[in-house]
Design a protein around this nucleic acid. Sequence first.
DNA 1: CGGGGCTTTGCAAACCTTTGCAGACAATTA
DNA 2: TAATTGTCTGCAAAGGTTTGCAAAGCCCCG
Lengths: 330, 330
Amino acid sequence: MTIKEVASQLGVSASTISRALARPELLSTETRERVLEAVDRLGYQPNLVARALRLQETRLIYVVIPTLSPFFLEVFRGVERGARETGYAALVGHTGRNVQREQLFLDQVASYRGDGVILVTSSDPAALLARRKRMPPVVAALEEIEGLAAPAVRVDHRKGAVDATNHLLALGHRRVAYIGGPEGQVIAGHRREGFHLAMNQAGLDPDGYPYLAVDYAVELGEQAMESLLTLHPPPTAVFAGNDEIAIGAIRAIKRVGLQVGRDISVIGFDDQRLASLYEPPLTTIRVPTEELGYRAILMMVDQLQGRSTEEDIVLPTSLVIRSTTGAPRA
Amino acid sequence: MTIKEVASQLGVSASTISRALARPELLSTETRERVLEAVDRLGYQPNLVARALRLQETRLIYVVIPTLSPFFLEVFRGVERGARETGYAALVGHTGRNVQREQLFLDQVASYRGDGVILVTSSDPAALLARRKRMPPVVAALEEIEGLAAPAVRVDHRKGAVDATNHLLALGHRRVAYIGGPEGQVIAGHRREGFHLAMNQAGLDPDGYPYLAVDYAVELGEQAMESLLTLHPPPTAVFAGNDEIAIGAIRAIKRVGLQVGRDISVIGFDDQRLASLYEPPLTTIRVPTEELGYRAILMMVDQLQGRSTEEDIVLPTSLVIRSTTGAPRA
DNA sequence: CGGGGCTTTGCAAACCTTTGCAGACAATTA
DNA sequence: TAATTGTCTGCAAAGGTTTGCAAAGCCCCG
């Protein structure tokens, strides 16, 4: 059922049908009603592909995330909500931190399949985008993208890490270790900087324990913690680069018979759902993931519709104290 | 950079460019090489919207899920992998179990924006699809859709539930309660049937404890378990409709000072990531979620490309014994 | 040397909308 | 009554691609 078929059924032109749906005030009351009735009766649905071709906009936004994890899912949830509210659809793609896969998505957008891209971190985005021929509008979510003039909706990872570290220090800890996210990742870097900053400020050596950079996975956090436990003296507190690593660390600690929150404190980052569910519930730094995604898509739409979006948006993190941190044993 | 621009740069027709990319063997070696070189040099990327309009296929598959939970995320991950392998893209939409939202997605596909729909459960799909004008190809994942002649890639929930119940019975439990998924949901229904079947077969009354139908959420499982614990005598084992409910039940049990796996056994369903991570690790029925999604998209593509897909695919579930089930106390 | 067949390329239509422009007609004003 | 203004509708082009058909050119064979 195309617009022409509806038109010929009614003995009017296709233009009239189009206008009845897009700008009904242009039609006489009588025609408008006849058309709308027929559209309804025949179940006509405009072909979105044809419309996209004509209007040169697909109303589709690509969201590129590194992995399909619950964490990024939260961000996507926000994007999806905002997209729905503004009449867009969101297409999520995960790259598995693989540059080629990332390239693939950008290609698709470059092929006019999407109106814009929301990049939620990226392996090497600046390089990628620079060599794109047709540069689609980009918004960065979660963290700014180095070397790229794209507006960002982000969080101050450095400050969050300072807060986390200070929380441990305020409890009286002096032997604090840091298990960080993957080497080379921007976010992981910032969080580590925050840790350094706070430790230095307290007059402590941030490199008192080896810096272990592991990917965001429970198993890897567990391994890292195991190796820290072999040191003498072991740390009394550990700051983990995210909640999954923290959970891993807790598992390792439990396994050797120590009690988390009493013998060793652990603090995470992100406040994933897992954090509050776990036993014991995890002390962590909350990142407003859903909100991040929501703001990012709104910023994207603003940009697409010609409203200015100069400024980055920085959302606050907050310390959520649960049960895995406490004063060091006397 | 359109195909015409490339063509005029080279002094050939647009057809030649198109053929160089789609059916290179039709061109003379010389022309082919000239064209491909120019395409590369100019960075020409075919406009996918125009192609979709011409070919009447978008190479986009909609995946409709009830909620953006880690569980459905697993299914989607499989879909995404299969889509990538076959040259499709997958667009995920969650309905929040809201019929209107579901309608919205189907409308979009009906508007030729997607080539097909993978429905991962649905509120009232048969009714919805019946009144759709243009019925797109549909594949059901996870569970068949009642009243709809769509092929399904699914799991035998009934049998899985029988296995779970039998595991508890084999351990010696006689006072077994069931906390189920939301009322009216097909999958929850089948799982409950399995529980009934196994209990009856063992000569036990499946309705010895009230049937509590709660949504798949930790908090609700917790509440349900609380109410079971007030009964005299309380159950010695609980079969939960999914892992989240099971985790909730465990929390309630822990809270009253009982030990899970010794005082009361709990078994879940799905084997979500949470299940193995939790303390204690959860005994559950594993559902091959990722595989489910993968097979579903392959079936979809088969259907779109005219290969026959008559038969449902049924994947096996398996019992994963961890630490939350054990023999009842003497 | 003429005709048939093959290879290679171009023309033009089709996919379905939207929208600028202009025409038709009615109503108003001089 | 003629001219002007305004309202409503249709025509046709444009958006970028693919592909059936036909034409052009070439080679080969009789």
